[in-house]
Design a protein around this nucleic acid. Structure first.
Lengths: 117, 117
DNA sequence: CTCCTTAGTATCTTTTAGTATACTATAGAA
DNA sequence: TTCTATAGTATACTAAAAGATACTAAGGAG
């Protein structure tokens, strides 16, 4: 396939996927379907609440995930991947696969460099 | 396919693709195979020389592109996509395709919103 | 009455990414 | 002698992303 650079829509996909925590959030939601805010937080403990909220809102804005608020105290909010959001999975899978190979490639490069020293 | 979030290597692929100008640079090199610095610059006029240099160096560092310097004046430097770099094409193609659909999706959303007002 | 829980906000600081602009070397052309 | 071309570098700046930390609402448990 040959993408005409001037008609490139790669950025549109990147905008949605890029963000320090977005891929992991998406993978968790793809795996589990539906999760509470606190569940996601526990799955990704290093993320701050601010960042988690921000990224979830952005994904919701693009119809990748759905947000359902249960009006109760303490609050309960459930996030789930939409059908549309699921269409991102092949891209994530392709990137994951490539990333795995790339990790090996980099290790191999390091070995070769060490050999020549 | 089900990616185990904890073993996720999506980031490794993203690190290489992400950067304001990297996708376009890559698409141009994928299309043309080999290009001089100034040719790339002309193909992406809005990019500054600093950014072009920076991104090219980063892509070279990851073996995605190759840099060949011809020792002559004025200088001539050719950049070409490596075989390894070509392995990124399916990912870029998938993102481009998704991005195209997403543009339509967003337009449709806007139409629906306007209808209900 | 105080504490706990959940899903957030608000504010501030730090880090990273990107922009703007000026400068350089050097051979050959005019 | 001055100008042009090429592929950069250097410096200073702005903007965007992310992090740290403190705060909030409100019902139920003790």
């Amino acid at each position: 396939m040959n993408i005409e650079p001037d008609l490139c829509r790669v950025e549109d996909a990147l905008e949605i996927i890029v963000g320090k925590w977005k891929p992991i959030i998406l993978l968790h939601l793809l795996k589990n379907g539906t999760m509470r805010f606190s569940e996601i937080k526990r799955s990704v403990p290093e993320i701050t609440q601010k960042m988690l909220t921000k990224h979830l809102r952005e994904l919701e804005e693009e119809d990748i995930i759905e947000r359902v608020v249960y009006p109760q105290v303490p609050p309960k909010v459930e996030y789930s991947i939409t059908e549309y959001g699921k269409s991102l999975e092949p891209i994530l899978a392709a990137m994951h696969e490539w990333g795995t190979k790339h990790t090996v490639h980099k290790k191999q490069k390091l070995v070769n460099q060490t050999k020549t020293i």
